[in-house]
Protein backbone atom coordinates (compact mmCIF):
# COMPACT_ATOMS: atom_id res chain seq x y z
CA UNK A 1 0.00 0.00 0.00
CA UNK A 2 1.59 3.21 -1.08
CA UNK A 3 -0.26 5.79 0.89
CA UNK A 4 0.69 9.47 0.90
CA UNK A 5 2.97 9.08 3.88
CA UNK A 6 4.60 6.03 2.49
CA UNK A 7 6.31 7.39 -0.60
CA UNK A 8 9.97 6.48 -0.64
CA UNK A 9 12.17 9.54 -0.36
CA UNK A 10 12.47 10.99 -3.82
CA UNK A 11 15.91 11.07 -5.32
CA UNK A 12 16.19 14.84 -5.10
CA UNK A 13 16.20 14.45 -1.35
CA UNK A 14 19.73 13.12 -1.50
CA UNK A 15 20.72 16.03 -3.65
CA UNK A 16 21.89 14.51 -6.90
CA UNK A 17 19.23 15.92 -9.18
CA UNK A 18 21.14 19.12 -9.83
CA UNK A 19 24.31 17.18 -10.57
CA UNK A 20 23.06 15.01 -13.43
CA UNK A 21 25.05 16.98 -15.97
CA UNK A 22 28.45 16.93 -14.27
CA UNK A 23 28.05 13.31 -13.14
CA UNK A 24 27.29 12.04 -16.62
CA UNK A 25 29.66 14.32 -18.49
CA UNK A 26 32.76 12.07 -18.18
CA UNK A 27 30.78 9.07 -19.43
CA UNK A 28 29.37 10.97 -22.37
CA UNK A 29 32.74 12.47 -23.19
CA UNK A 30 34.80 9.28 -23.01
CA UNK A 31 32.34 6.88 -24.60
CA UNK A 32 31.01 9.58 -26.91
CA UNK A 33 34.41 10.29 -28.40
CA UNK A 34 36.21 6.98 -28.22
CA UNK A 35 33.30 4.63 -28.85
CA UNK A 36 30.36 6.39 -30.47
CA UNK A 37 32.43 8.09 -33.15
CA UNK A 38 34.24 4.89 -34.19
CA UNK A 39 30.96 2.98 -34.11
CA UNK A 40 29.28 5.66 -36.26
CA UNK A 41 32.17 5.27 -38.67
CA UNK A 42 31.46 1.54 -38.80
CA UNK A 43 27.75 2.23 -39.24
CA UNK A 44 28.64 4.33 -42.28
CA UNK A 45 31.00 1.61 -43.52
CA UNK A 46 28.17 -0.90 -43.47
CA UNK A 47 26.45 1.16 -46.18
CA UNK A 48 29.53 1.54 -48.36
CA UNK A 49 30.81 -0.55 -51.24
CA UNK A 50 33.44 -3.06 -50.33
CA UNK A 51 36.91 -2.62 -51.63
CA UNK A 52 38.25 -5.93 -52.86
CA UNK A 53 40.35 -7.53 -50.07
CA UNK A 54 39.66 -5.05 -47.30
CA UNK A 55 38.77 -1.40 -47.12
CA UNK A 56 35.80 0.53 -48.48
CA UNK A 57 34.88 2.56 -51.53
CA UNK A 58 32.79 5.65 -50.77
CA UNK A 59 29.75 4.60 -52.79
CA UNK A 60 26.57 4.14 -50.79
CA UNK A 61 24.85 0.82 -51.18
CA UNK A 62 22.71 -1.65 -49.25
CA UNK A 63 24.72 -4.58 -50.59
CA UNK A 64 26.00 -5.69 -47.18
CA UNK A 65 22.51 -5.92 -45.68
CA UNK A 66 21.23 -7.50 -48.85
CA UNK A 67 23.92 -10.15 -48.53
CA UNK A 68 22.86 -10.81 -44.94
CA UNK A 69 19.15 -11.24 -45.57
CA UNK A 70 18.78 -12.27 -49.21
CA UNK A 71 20.31 -15.08 -51.23
CA UNK A 72 20.26 -15.63 -54.95
CA UNK A 73 22.05 -18.96 -54.96
CA UNK A 74 25.75 -19.73 -55.22
CA UNK A 75 26.02 -17.95 -58.57
CA UNK A 76 23.70 -15.08 -57.81
CA UNK A 77 21.20 -15.66 -60.58
CA UNK A 78 18.43 -17.59 -58.89
CA UNK A 79 15.27 -15.87 -57.68
CA UNK A 80 15.82 -13.98 -54.42
CA UNK A 81 15.04 -15.92 -51.27
CA UNK A 82 15.53 -15.38 -47.59
CA UNK A 83 19.14 -16.11 -46.66
CA UNK A 84 19.08 -18.42 -43.65
CA UNK A 85 22.85 -18.88 -43.35
CA UNK A 86 23.54 -15.82 -41.26
CA UNK A 87 20.28 -15.94 -39.34
CA UNK A 88 21.22 -19.47 -38.33
CA UNK A 89 24.67 -18.32 -37.25
CA UNK A 90 22.99 -15.67 -35.10
CA UNK A 91 20.54 -18.16 -33.69
CA UNK A 92 23.34 -20.61 -32.85
CA UNK A 93 25.37 -17.90 -31.12
CA UNK A 94 22.38 -16.61 -29.15
CA UNK A 95 21.52 -20.14 -28.08
CA UNK A 96 25.08 -20.81 -27.03
CA UNK A 97 25.47 -17.51 -25.15
CA UNK A 98 22.13 -18.13 -23.46
CA UNK A 99 23.20 -21.57 -22.28
CA UNK A 100 26.48 -20.19 -21.00
CA UNK A 101 24.61 -17.47 -19.12
CA UNK A 102 22.31 -20.01 -17.47
CA UNK A 103 25.28 -22.18 -16.53
CA UNK A 104 27.11 -19.19 -15.06
CA UNK A 105 23.98 -18.19 -13.15
CA UNK A 106 23.34 -21.67 -11.77
CA UNK A 107 26.85 -21.95 -10.40
CA UNK A 108 27.62 -18.25 -9.94
CA UNK A 109 24.61 -17.46 -7.77
CA UNK A 110 25.37 -20.03 -5.04
CA UNK A 111 29.01 -18.96 -5.14
CA UNK A 112 28.10 -15.30 -4.76
CA UNK A 113 25.67 -16.19 -1.99
CA UNK A 114 28.28 -18.24 -0.19
CA UNK A 115 30.81 -15.41 -0.38
CA UNK A 116 28.31 -12.79 0.77
CA UNK A 117 27.47 -14.87 3.84
CA UNK A 118 31.09 -15.22 4.99
CA UNK A 119 32.27 -12.99 7.85
CA UNK A 120 32.77 -9.42 6.64
CA UNK A 121 36.58 -9.48 6.93
CA UNK A 122 37.01 -12.50 4.66
CA UNK A 123 34.58 -11.55 1.87
CA UNK A 124 37.17 -9.49 0.05
CA UNK A 125 39.52 -12.43 0.14
CA UNK A 126 36.94 -14.71 -1.44
CA UNK A 127 36.27 -12.15 -4.16
CA UNK A 128 39.95 -12.04 -4.97
CA UNK A 129 40.03 -15.82 -4.98
CA UNK A 130 37.46 -15.74 -7.77
CA UNK A 131 39.35 -13.13 -9.80
CA UNK A 132 42.97 -14.24 -9.30
CA UNK A 133 42.83 -16.78 -12.16
CA UNK A 134 41.99 -13.89 -14.46
CA UNK A 135 45.45 -12.47 -14.03
CA UNK A 136 46.49 -15.15 -16.48
CA UNK A 137 45.56 -14.42 -20.05
CA UNK A 138 42.33 -15.92 -21.39
CA UNK A 139 44.14 -17.62 -24.24
CA UNK A 140 46.48 -19.39 -21.84
CA UNK A 141 43.62 -20.44 -19.62
CA UNK A 142 41.65 -21.75 -22.57
CA UNK A 143 44.60 -23.69 -23.96
CA UNK A 144 45.26 -25.19 -20.52
CA UNK A 145 41.62 -26.13 -20.19
CA UNK A 146 41.89 -27.91 -23.50
CA UNK A 147 44.96 -29.73 -22.26
CA UNK A 148 43.00 -30.91 -19.21
CA UNK A 149 40.00 -32.27 -21.06
CA UNK A 150 41.61 -33.79 -24.14
CA UNK A 151 41.25 -37.53 -24.81
CA UNK A 152 44.58 -38.38 -23.23
CA UNK A 153 44.53 -35.45 -20.80
CA UNK A 154 44.62 -35.63 -17.00
CA UNK A 155 40.82 -35.58 -16.56
CA UNK A 156 40.14 -38.56 -18.80
CA UNK A 157 43.20 -40.46 -17.61
CA UNK A 158 42.28 -40.12 -13.96
CA UNK A 159 38.65 -41.02 -14.61
CA UNK A 160 39.85 -44.11 -16.45
CA UNK A 161 42.38 -44.90 -13.73
CA UNK A 162 39.73 -45.03 -11.05
CA UNK A 163 37.59 -47.10 -13.39
CA UNK A 164 34.72 -44.67 -13.72
CA UNK A 165 34.89 -44.80 -17.51
CA UNK A 166 36.34 -47.37 -19.91
CA UNK A 167 37.33 -45.11 -22.77
CA UNK A 168 38.04 -41.40 -22.84
CA UNK A 169 35.04 -39.07 -22.78
CA UNK A 170 35.16 -37.15 -26.04
CA UNK A 171 35.08 -33.58 -24.74
CA UNK A 172 37.37 -31.57 -27.01
CA UNK A 173 35.61 -30.25 -30.11
CA UNK A 174 32.15 -30.65 -28.59
CA UNK A 175 29.54 -28.11 -27.57
CA UNK A 176 30.06 -29.15 -23.98
CA UNK A 177 33.67 -28.01 -24.19
CA UNK A 178 32.55 -24.69 -25.65
CA UNK A 179 30.11 -24.23 -22.78
CA UNK A 180 32.83 -25.06 -20.30
CA UNK A 181 35.12 -22.56 -21.99
CA UNK A 182 32.52 -19.79 -21.97
CA UNK A 183 31.69 -20.55 -18.35
CA UNK A 184 35.36 -20.35 -17.54
CA UNK A 185 35.78 -17.12 -19.50
CA UNK A 186 32.96 -15.19 -17.91
CA UNK A 187 32.16 -16.61 -14.47
CA UNK A 188 33.36 -13.63 -12.38
CA UNK A 189 31.18 -11.36 -14.48
CA UNK A 190 28.24 -13.22 -12.99
CA UNK A 191 29.55 -13.72 -9.46
CA UNK A 192 30.68 -10.18 -8.65
CA UNK A 193 27.52 -8.22 -9.49
CA UNK A 194 25.37 -10.80 -7.71
CA UNK A 195 27.69 -10.66 -4.74
CA UNK A 196 27.37 -6.88 -4.65
CA UNK A 197 23.59 -7.26 -4.50
CA UNK A 198 23.38 -10.16 -2.04
CA UNK A 199 25.82 -8.50 0.32
CA UNK A 200 23.21 -5.80 0.74
CA UNK A 201 20.39 -8.25 1.44
CA UNK A 202 18.79 -7.91 4.86
CA UNK A 203 18.71 -11.41 6.32
CA UNK A 204 16.06 -10.35 8.82
CA UNK A 205 13.69 -10.78 5.88
CA UNK A 206 14.66 -14.43 5.57
CA UNK A 207 14.25 -14.90 9.29
CA UNK A 208 10.82 -13.36 9.18
CA UNK A 209 9.90 -15.68 6.35
CA UNK A 210 11.24 -18.66 8.28
CA UNK A 211 9.21 -17.63 11.29
CA UNK A 212 6.18 -17.74 9.05
CA UNK A 213 7.08 -21.31 8.09
CA UNK A 214 8.22 -20.49 4.59
CA UNK A 215 10.61 -23.17 3.33
CA UNK A 216 14.19 -22.25 2.58
CA UNK A 217 13.63 -22.47 -1.16
CA UNK A 218 10.34 -20.60 -1.05
CA UNK A 219 12.16 -17.82 0.80
CA UNK A 220 14.87 -17.79 -1.85
CA UNK A 221 12.30 -17.59 -4.62
CA UNK A 222 9.82 -15.19 -3.09
CA UNK A 223 11.95 -12.93 -0.90
CA UNK A 224 15.61 -13.07 -1.89
CA UNK A 225 15.41 -13.18 -5.68
CA UNK A 226 13.30 -10.03 -6.08
CA UNK A 227 15.71 -8.12 -3.86
CA UNK A 228 18.92 -9.25 -5.57
CA UNK A 229 17.40 -9.13 -9.07
CA UNK A 230 19.42 -6.07 -10.16
CA UNK A 231 22.63 -7.97 -9.48
CA UNK A 232 21.42 -11.03 -11.37
CA UNK A 233 20.39 -8.95 -14.35
CA UNK A 234 23.70 -7.09 -14.38
CA UNK A 235 25.54 -10.43 -14.22
CA UNK A 236 23.46 -11.90 -17.03
CA UNK A 237 24.17 -8.88 -19.25
CA UNK A 238 27.89 -9.09 -18.52
CA UNK A 239 28.00 -12.78 -19.40
CA UNK A 240 25.50 -12.95 -22.25
CA UNK A 241 26.61 -10.00 -24.34
CA UNK A 242 30.35 -10.79 -24.46
CA UNK A 243 29.55 -14.51 -25.00
CA UNK A 244 27.62 -13.55 -28.14
CA UNK A 245 30.75 -12.26 -29.80
CA UNK A 246 33.22 -14.69 -28.23
CA UNK A 247 35.28 -16.81 -30.55
CA UNK A 248 38.26 -18.02 -28.57
CA UNK A 249 36.34 -20.72 -26.71
CA UNK A 250 34.24 -21.79 -29.72
CA UNK A 251 37.30 -21.95 -31.96
CA UNK A 252 39.83 -23.57 -29.64
CA UNK A 253 37.53 -25.88 -27.71
CA UNK A 254 34.77 -26.37 -30.24
CA UNK A 255 36.95 -26.93 -33.30
CA UNK A 256 35.83 -23.87 -35.28
CA UNK A 257 33.77 -26.06 -37.59
CA UNK A 258 30.98 -23.53 -37.84
CA UNK A 259 30.93 -19.77 -37.77
CA UNK A 260 29.74 -17.97 -34.67
CA UNK A 261 28.86 -14.28 -34.83
CA UNK A 262 32.31 -13.43 -33.50
CA UNK A 263 34.26 -15.54 -35.96
CA UNK A 264 32.00 -14.48 -38.85
CA UNK A 265 32.81 -10.82 -38.19
CA UNK A 266 36.45 -11.61 -37.58
CA UNK A 267 36.65 -13.39 -40.93
CA UNK A 268 35.42 -10.25 -42.71
CA UNK A 269 38.21 -8.11 -41.28
CA UNK A 270 41.07 -10.53 -40.70
CA UNK A 271 40.20 -13.42 -42.99
CA UNK A 272 40.61 -13.84 -46.70
CA UNK A 273 37.10 -12.54 -47.42
CA UNK A 274 38.17 -9.00 -46.49
CA UNK A 275 34.62 -7.65 -46.69
CA UNK A 276 34.62 -4.71 -44.27
CA UNK A 277 31.12 -3.42 -45.10
CA UNK A 278 29.63 -6.85 -44.51
CA UNK A 279 31.56 -7.26 -41.25
CA UNK A 280 30.32 -3.83 -40.19
CA UNK A 281 26.76 -4.71 -41.17
CA UNK A 282 26.80 -7.93 -39.14
CA UNK A 283 28.11 -5.96 -36.17
CA UNK A 284 25.37 -3.35 -36.60
CA UNK A 285 22.67 -6.01 -36.71
CA UNK A 286 24.11 -7.62 -33.59
CA UNK A 287 24.28 -4.28 -31.79
CA UNK A 288 20.72 -3.43 -32.75
CA UNK A 289 19.48 -6.72 -31.31
CA UNK A 290 21.37 -6.27 -28.04
CA UNK A 291 20.32 -2.64 -27.81
CA UNK A 292 16.65 -3.53 -28.15
CA UNK A 293 16.93 -6.05 -25.32
CA UNK A 294 18.84 -3.64 -23.10
CA UNK A 295 16.42 -0.78 -23.69
CA UNK A 296 13.46 -3.02 -22.91
CA UNK A 297 15.21 -3.83 -19.65
CA UNK A 298 15.97 -0.16 -18.98
CA UNK A 299 12.36 0.76 -19.65
CA UNK A 300 11.13 -1.86 -17.21
CA UNK A 301 13.64 -0.54 -14.72
CA UNK A 302 12.53 3.05 -15.20
CA UNK A 303 8.93 2.06 -14.79
CA UNK A 304 9.88 0.29 -11.58
CA UNK A 305 11.78 3.32 -10.35
CA UNK A 306 8.97 5.80 -10.99
CA UNK A 307 6.18 3.58 -9.75
Amino acid sequence: MAGPGNIPPSASDTGYRSLIGPLLLPTWAVIGIFMVLPVLLMAVYSFLTKEFRGGVIWDFTLAAYDQFFVTRGLFGDEPAQIEWTYINIFWRSIWQAGLATILCLLIGFPTAWFIATRPAQTRGLWLFLITIPYWVNLLIRTVSLKFLIRDNGPLNESLMAIGLIDGPLPLVNTNLAVQLGLFYSYLPFMVLPIYAAVERYNFALSEAAADLYASRWATLREIVLPVVKPGIIAGCILVFVPSLGAFLAPDLLGGAKTFMIGSLIDEQFKGSQGDWPFGAAVAMILMTLVLIVLLLYARAQTRGATR
Partner: peptide
Amino acid sequence: ALINLPLMVPEIV
Protein backbone atom coordinates in the same frame (compact mmCIF):
# COMPACT_ATOMS: atom_id res chain seq x y z
CA ALA B 1 22.54 2.60 -23.93
CA LEU B 2 25.69 4.69 -24.17
CA ILE B 3 27.24 3.22 -21.04
CA ASN B 4 26.66 -0.28 -22.34
CA LEU B 5 27.74 0.44 -25.88
CA PRO B 6 31.31 -0.85 -25.42
CA LEU B 7 29.83 -4.16 -24.32
CA MET B 8 27.69 -4.51 -27.41
CA VAL B 9 30.20 -3.89 -30.13
CA PRO B 10 32.25 -6.96 -31.07
CA GLU B 11 35.90 -6.47 -30.20
CA ILE B 12 37.31 -6.75 -33.69
CA VAL B 13 34.93 -4.02 -34.85
